[in-house]
């Protein structure tokens, strides 16, 4: 793995961004509202990055809330029943989501895009139904149950500790994705995404790679789900809602599909916009504004916000010539 060129503006930007992420709580640390927004932002950066990782293999999902919720339920049940610390059980939450994800992936690998979208959406509905009906004795049905916090509230500055913990997890996740995509696996995934037939001809069996992408994506999504649950300290089946399946898609598209930076930029921009509009007092209107933003980006900026510098450079070059 080549170490990126230090003069590359992208390396500088990333470094600046990381410094900012580590320093920002020091400035706003006393304001718990802002800190909560930042924590949720990090959780959704993890979630959106996981969703986006699936698109690297040419697959998509409209039902990732299934894995988000399964991770949350598995991790919190383990923490409650066995008394394990949340930081340990969230790995099991991710693993459980990954197992289910691979099972769902098995039914999906042969399907075309639209069918895949439908099946993943369907699974989220089916799992929610199971949780509120047949599994209700364990899950508490629609009422849900309280779960322990990631960092006990008795510790002073617990939110700050939580922020740094989740920040480290987020950085680890993005680094793993970065190296995975640079590896031979990433190359194979790209080949499958661009042309499955040619990939086959080159000796790549698409099925294990697609399942791998599904499993990894579900694993990280499960971890994100567990983190959210341990942050709120409560879980209900609302976690499987359609909205929670749609958010990572909106974040990823706004930022830029198929790039590592896309989901990060998208989550930050949309979350800030979202909470900003909320602060101004727009409730329904903010949904409309996000909807319009999404439509405009898909039509006029199909590669998302991260492509803006490139688009500007292109404009300038065109003017010069």
């Amino acid at each position: 793995m080549k170490i990126s060129n230090a003069r590359d503006p992208r390396t500088l930007l990333t470094a600046a961004f990381l410094v900012l992420a580590f320093l920002i709580p020091l400035f706003i640390g006393s304001n718990l509202y802002y800190l909560t927004i930042l924590i949720l932002m990090l959780i959704f950066i993890i979630y959106a990055s996981a969703w986006n990782f699936l698109t690297f293999s040419g697959q998509g999902s409209l039902g990732h809330a299934a894995f988000f919720g399964l991770g949350g339920y598995a991790a919190s049940l383990l923490a409650l029943r066995l008394g394990l610390p949340p930081l340990v059980t969230l790995v099991f939450g991710g693993a459980f989501a990954a197992v289910i994800g691979i099972l769902i992936g098995l039914t999906c690998v042969r399907l075309r895009e639209w069918f895949l979208a439908m099946v993943t959406f369907g699974f989220a509905v089916i799992i929610q139904t199971l949780v509120v009906s047949q599994l209700a004795p364990v899950t508490g049905g629609w009422d849900g149950y309280p779960v322990p916090k990631l960092v006990p509230t008795s510790i002073p500055g617990y939110l700050m500790i939580e922020y740094y913990l989740i920040l480290i997890i987020a950085i680890a996740v993005i680094l793993i994705f970065h190296y995975l995509l640079k590896s031979r696996i990433g190359l194979a995934l790209a080949a499958i995404r661009e042309n499955e037939l040619e990939a086959r001809a080159a000796g790549i069996n698409p099925v294990p790679f697609k399942l791998f992408a599904f499993g990894v994506s579900a694993f990280v999504t499960g971890i994100a789900g567990s983190l959210e649950i341990f942050h709120f300290g409560y879980i209900t089946p609302e976690i499987f809602g359609i909205d929670l399946s749609f958010w990572p898609i909106i974040y990823s598209i706004t930022g830029g599909l198929g790039t590592l930076a896309g989901p990060i930029v998208g989550t930050i921009v949309v979350t800030l916009l979202w909470d900003g509009l909320n602060a101004v007092g727009l409730t329904y209107a903010r949904f409309i504004i996000i909807g319009v933003l999404l439509v405009l980006i898909i039509i006029f900026l199909p590669r998302g916000l991260v492509s803006i510098p490139e688009e500007i450079q292109k404009r300038i070059r065109r003017k010069k010539s």
């Binding site: 749609f246 949904f287 409309i288 996000i290 909807g291 999404l294 439509v295 898909i298």
Partner: peptide
């Protein structure tokens, strides 16, 4: 784009 329209 349908997702956007749904929200709108």
């Amino acid at each position: 784009i349908s997702l956007g329209l749904i929200y709108i």
